[in-house]
Amino acid sequence: MSSGLTQRRRNVVGDNVDDSGSPGPTPASGSVGSGMDARADADRDDDYDDADGKGGKGANNKLTLLEEVLLMGLKDAQGYLSFWNDNISYVLRGCILMELSLRSRVKTVMEIRKRPYAERLIEVIDERPTGEVLLDEALKLMKIDQQSITNWIDLLSGETWNLLKINYQLKQVRERIAKGLVDKGVLRTEKRNFVLFDMATHPVSDHTVKDELIKRTVDCLLGRGPQPPDRRTVAMVCAAYAANVLENALVHLSHAQREACFQRVDEMLQEHAALTQKALSGGTTEVMAGVLSVYTKMDNIL
Rank of each mutant, 00 (worst) to 15 (best):
residue 84 W to H: 15
residue 214 I to F: 11
residue 74 L to S: 02
residue 139 L to W: 01
residue 97 L to Y: 05
residue 58 G to T: 10
residue 165 K to G: 02
residue 156 L to V: 00
residue 207 H to M: 13
residue 125 I to R: 07
residue 57 K to C: 08
residue 301 I to Y: 11
residue 160 T to G: 06
residue 205 S to I: 07
residue 118 A to Q: 11
residue 194 F to P: 01
residue 48 Y to L: 12
residue 3 S to H: 12
residue 294 V to P: 01
residue 24 G to F: 03
residue 42 A to Q: 12
residue 143 K to Y: 01
residue 32 V to E: 09
residue 213 L to W: 06
residue 14 G to Q: 05
residue 249 A to M: 01
residue 286 E to P: 02
residue 15 D to N: 10
residue 155 L to P: 00
residue 47 D to R: 08
residue 62 K to A: 14
residue 75 K to F: 11
residue 257 Q to E: 15
residue 245 V to W: 04
residue 77 A to Q: 12
residue 69 V to L: 03
residue 299 D to L: 04
residue 152 W to E: 07
residue 223 G to D: 09
residue 218 V to P: 06
residue 157 S to Y: 15
residue 97 L to G: 09
residue 44 R to T: 14
residue 223 G to V: 01
residue 11 N to D: 15
residue 131 G to T: 09
residue 192 R to D: 14
residue 252 H to R: 10
residue 51 A to H: 03
residue 67 E to S: 07
residue 204 V to Y: 02
residue 126 D to G: 09
residue 269 L to I: 06
residue 213 L to F: 04
residue 27 P to Q: 04
residue 223 G to S: 09
residue 27 P to N: 04
residue 181 L to Y: 06
residue 271 E to K: 07
residue 298 M to D: 10
residue 2 S to F: 10
residue 239 A to T: 04
residue 302 L to Q: 12
residue 109 V to H: 08
residue 44 R to K: 13
residue 261 C to Q: 03
residue 176 R to W: 00
residue 286 E to I: 02
residue 90 Y to M: 09
residue 232 R to W: 08
residue 253 L to E: 07
residue 244 N to D: 15
residue 17 V to S: 10
residue 220 C to K: 00
residue 265 V to I: 05
residue 187 L to W: 03
residue 106 V to E: 04
residue 120 R to F: 05
residue 62 K to W: 03
residue 192 R to S: 15
residue 82 S to M: 05
residue 49 D to M: 07
residue 165 K to M: 11
residue 90 Y to H: 12
residue 244 N to Q: 10
residue 219 D to W: 00
residue 197 F to L: 14
residue 199 M to N: 09
residue 168 Y to P: 02
residue 18 D to E: 14
residue 29 S to V: 02
residue 60 N to W: 00
residue 152 W to M: 05
residue 188 R to V: 13
residue 28 A to G: 14
residue 219 D to C: 01
residue 142 M to S: 07
residue 121 L to M: 14
residue 100 L to N: 06
residue 27 P to A: 01
residue 203 P to K: 09
residue 2 S to D: 13
residue 225 G to V: 00
residue 67 E to I: 06
residue 64 T to A: 09
residue 302 L to N: 13
residue 278 K to P: 02
residue 155 L to W: 02
residue 72 M to N: 11
residue 234 V to S: 06
residue 145 D to R: 13
residue 70 L to Y: 02
residue 13 V to F: 09
residue 241 Y to K: 08
residue 37 D to R: 13
residue 128 R to T: 15
residue 204 V to F: 01
residue 214 I to Q: 12
residue 85 N to G: 08
residue 183 D to A: 15
residue 10 R to L: 04
residue 168 Y to H: 13
residue 298 M to I: 08
residue 302 L to R: 12
residue 252 H to N: 10
residue 58 G to A: 07
residue 296 T to M: 06
residue 133 V to W: 13
residue 234 V to R: 08
residue 184 K to Q: 10
residue 119 E to C: 07
residue 265 V to L: 00
residue 267 E to M: 04
residue 99 E to W: 03
residue 294 V to Y: 06
residue 160 T to C: 03
residue 168 Y to W: 05
residue 160 T to V: 03
residue 232 R to G: 06
residue 195 V to G: 05
residue 29 S to K: 00
residue 266 D to L: 00
